[in-house]
Design a protein around this nucleic acid. Structure first.
Lengths: 192, 192, 192, 192
DNA sequence: TCCTAAGCGAGACGGTACGTCTTGTCTTCCA
DNA sequence: TGGAAGACAAGACGTACCGTCTCGCTTAGGA
C-alpha cells in the first residue's frame, strides 16, 4: 500500500480553504497571494510550488474539486427526474464558493452590476405584464433573475457564434421561450 | 456659467475608444492605464483627471454611454411587442463591447469557463431528451446557453437571498419554467 | 539658465549617503536594496529607476563620484612631488568609504582574512630580520601591510598574465624590491 | 584514536573541487550551494552536514587546506633565502584558486576594478619618471601592480589603525619605500 | 487681440504585489 | 540506517502598475 507523501495534500487543502475564505471576506480580485499563504500558514514559495500560475490556477483547482464532488454525487444516485436538484443541493452546501464564483463575477463587479441593472428593468416589465393576482405565486425577483440570466447568456452565445440569425429572429425565439417559461411557472404554482 | 471646453469631451471619447479597442485585443484585466493613455495619445495624469478611480470608472462610463444609447432608442419607438429586440439590436451594433463585458466575464475568465462546462453538460441532457426530429428547429447549443444562463442566475439569486426555499422546490420551479420554454420554442418553430 | 529638475540629483545623493552609511554599519554584502531605500526615505522602484542593475551600480557610482573628486583636486594643484599625498588626504576625508571598499574586501571577508593571515606571517619574518634598534623607526605592522599588499598584487598580476616568468625569477624580483623598500624606510627614518 | 571514516574525506574533497571549479567558471558570489552539490553529485542536506555555515565555510576550508600545504612545504625545506618563493610556487600550482580568491576580489568585482584603475594611473606616472633605457629591464605593468597593491594595503592599514600619522608623513614614508624598491629593481636588473 | 486659467504631456516618486530564486531546516522514502 | 530527494518557511530580488505629485507647454475663452 503506497503512502505518497500526504504533505502535498494537506498543503493544497489549506490553500483551497484559505482562498475560499478570503474570497468571501474581500473578493477574489483584491485577495493577494500573500494573503492566502498568510491565512494558510505557508510560505509564498510553497504556493508557487503547487500552483505555478498563481491564484487563477488555485481557483480552477477549487472548481475541479467541487465539480468532482458534484459528479460523484450524480453517479451515485443515477439520473434524477429533476436534473438541477444536484446543482441546487451542492450550491446550498457550498454557498460561499458559489457566491464567490458566480456572484462576484469579477471584472471588478462590472458584470454583476450589469446583470442587476438589467434585472431591474426586466422586473418593471414583469410588474406591468403579470396580473396582480398571479404575482404571489412566485417571487417576481426570481423570475427577473431567471430571464436576465437567460438573456445575457443567449446574447453571449449569439455574439460568440457571429450572429447566425438576425436580431429580430433571436428576439422572437427568446420571447417565445421566456413567455412560456413564465406562464408555466405562474399557472403551475397556482395549481399546486 | 461654466465654460464647456470641448477638449474634455474629446479626451473622454478618446479614452472610451481606446479602452474598448484594448479590451477586445487583450482583455480587460490585462489592460493597464498606461496602455489606454498610450493608445489615446494622452498623459497618464490626464486619465486620472477624468476618472480618478481608475479604469473601472472608465468602464462604467462606457456602459453608461451605451445604456443611454439603448434607452434613447427605446423611448423613440415606444414599448415594442418584442421587448428584447432593442437589446439584440444594440448588441449587434456594439458586439465588441458586449463580448468584452459579458463574454470575458472577468475573474480571469473563470466564470466564462464555468458557464461553458455547465452548458456542455446541459447540452448532453438535451440531446437525450429531445427527439431527433425536433432538434433541427433550433440549435441545441443556443438552448443550452439559455438554460445554463438561467440556471446560474437563478442560483445566484437564491444564494444572495439566503435560500428562501428548499433546494427541492427551487429545482422544481426551475424545471417547470425550463421545460415549458424548451417545448414552446421547439413546437413553435415547428408550426412556423 | 536651465534648471534640469534637481530631484534626480537629490535622490541620487540620498542613495549614495545611505549606502555608504550602511556599508559601515553592517557591510556591503549583507545590505539589501530595501535597507538602502528605507534609509534614504525612497521607494524601491525609485532605486531601480536610477540604478537598474542594483546596488553594484550604486557602489560604482559612489566610486565614480569619489574619483572625480580626487582628480579634480589633483588637477587643481598640479603634479605634486609626493604623488600619493592626494590619495592619503582623500582617504582621510572619506575614511568610511575607503574602509568599506578596500577593507571589507567582500567575498564575505575572505580576502581580508587572507591578507591578514599573510601579513601576520610577514610580520614574524620582519621581527627576525630587522635589528631591534631599527624597529622603532617605523611600525613593523605598517611594513608588513605594505609588503603583503605588494605580494598579493604581484601574484595576481603574474597569474592574470599567465605566469610570464618562472616562479624563482618572480620571487627574486620581489625580494629585491622589497628589501630595498624596507631598508630605505628604516635608514631614512633614522636620519630624520 | 578516532576513526577517520574515509567517506567524509571523499565527500569533502568532492565539495572542495566542485567549488574551486565553479568559482573559476562563474565566480564565487554567483555560485549557489545547489550548483556545488550538483557538481559533486551529492545531496543538499549532505553539504550542510559537513559545512553548516554555508559556502563561506567551505571556502575557508579550501584555504585552510591550501595553507597547510604551503606551510608543510616551507617546513620541509627550512627557511629559504628567498622567502616568497613558496608563495609563487604554490600559486603557480593552484593558479585557479589564487585567481579566484585574490583576483575576483569579491564585492562583485568592485575591489578588483578599483585596483585596476589605480594601477593604470600609477603606470602613467612610471612611464613619465623612468628613463626609456631602463623600461626594458622589468615590465612596468608588474611594477605598477606592486606599487598599487602596496598603496592600497598601506591605506587600509592606516585607516584601520585610526590614522596614527598625518597624511603627509604617510605619503612620505610610502614614497621613500617605493622609490627605493623601483630603483633597486631596475638597477639590479641592469647589472644582472 | 491679448492673457490667463485650464487642460495636457512628461515623468519622478512612494507604494504594493508579483513571480523567481536561494538559503537552511526538516521529513519522507529508498537502497 | 544513512543519504538523496525534495517540501517547506523565510525573505531578497528585479519588474510592473498604481495613484500622486510637480513641472512647463499649449490653448481655448473671456477680457
Amino acid at each position: 500500500m503506497p503512502r505518497p507523501d500526504r504533505r502535498r495534500e494537506r498543503t493544497q487543502t489549506a490553500l483551497r480553504e484559505a482562498l475560499v475564505a478570503l474570497i468571501l471576506e474581500r473578493g477574489y480580485e483584491t485577495t493577494t497571494v500573500q494573503d492566502i499563504v498568510d491565512r494558510a500558514n505557508l510560505g509564498r514559495a510553497t504556493f508557487y510550488l503547487h500552483f505555478p500560475n498563481g491564484k487563477d490556477e488555485l481557483l480552477l483547482h477549487i472548481m475541479d474539486v467541487a465539480q468532482k464532488d458534484i459528479l460523484k454525487r450524480a453517479h451515485t444516485h443515477g439520473l434524477p427526474s429533476v436534473p438541477s436538484i444536484h446543482a441546487f443541493q451542492h450550491a446550498a452546501e457550498n454557498a460561499n464558493l458559489y457566491r464567490a464564483i458566480l456572484g462576484g463575477g469579477g471584472m471588478s463587479g462590472i458584470m454583476a452590476r450589469f446583470q442587476q441593472s438589467t434585472a431591474a428593468e426586466v422586473l418593471e416589465r414583469l410588474k406591468l405584464l403579470i396580473p396582480v393576482e398571479h404575482q404571489a405565486n412566485a417571487p417576481l425577483e426570481m423570475i427577473a433573475a431567471y430571464v436576465t440570466g437567460a438573456l445575457n447568456a443567449t446574447l453571449v452565445w449569439w455574439l460568440e457564434n457571429d450572429q447566425p440569425y438576425p436580431p429580430e429572429e433571436m428576439a422572437l425565439r427568446f420571447l417565445k421561450m421566456t413567455q412560456a417559461a413564465v406562464v408555466s411557472l405562474l399557472s403551475a404554482s397556482t395549481s399546486s
